[in-house]
């Protein structure tokens, strides 16, 4: 399995650390109700098909990447950095 890091180019899977679904980017606000936090931390769409998840180029540029991927075929459809632009982020 190979991911194309937007900064480093195509690299073997072993350079990356995987953390889970990209919903982790949508952090509820400090005032969000407990249900929102439960959903954020635990519940997952977990599709058999195209999903977005988070990978960290730990042995490369240390970018966190949002990867669009098929969980059935392992096809990689897109890779982008999570903090690529200045408008990203949940805490202003």
């Amino acid at each position: 399995m190979r991911l194309t890091c937007p900064l480093c180019g195509p690299r073997d899977r072993r350079e990356f650390y995987y953390s889970g679904a990209a919903v982790a980017l949508d952090r509820p606000g400090a005032e969000a109700p407990p249900e929102a936090w439960d959903d954020h931390l635990h519940n997952r769409d977990n599709p058999a098909g195209v999903t977005q998840d988070l990978w960290y180029h730990e042995q490369g540029c240390c970018s966190w990447l949002k990867v669009t991927r098929n969980t059935v075929t392992h096809e990689i459809l897109a890779v982008e950095t999570v903090g690529g632009d200045s408008t990203a982020g949940g805490v202003a």
Partner: peptide, 18 residues
């Protein structure tokens, strides 16, 4: 040490990249 570095990178890049 490694865990925290990864965590800081995540928090920064995901939540407060600006």
């Amino acid at each position: 040490a490694g865990l925290v570095m990864r965590h800081l990178d995540f928090v920064h890049q995901a939540f407060c990249a600006a």
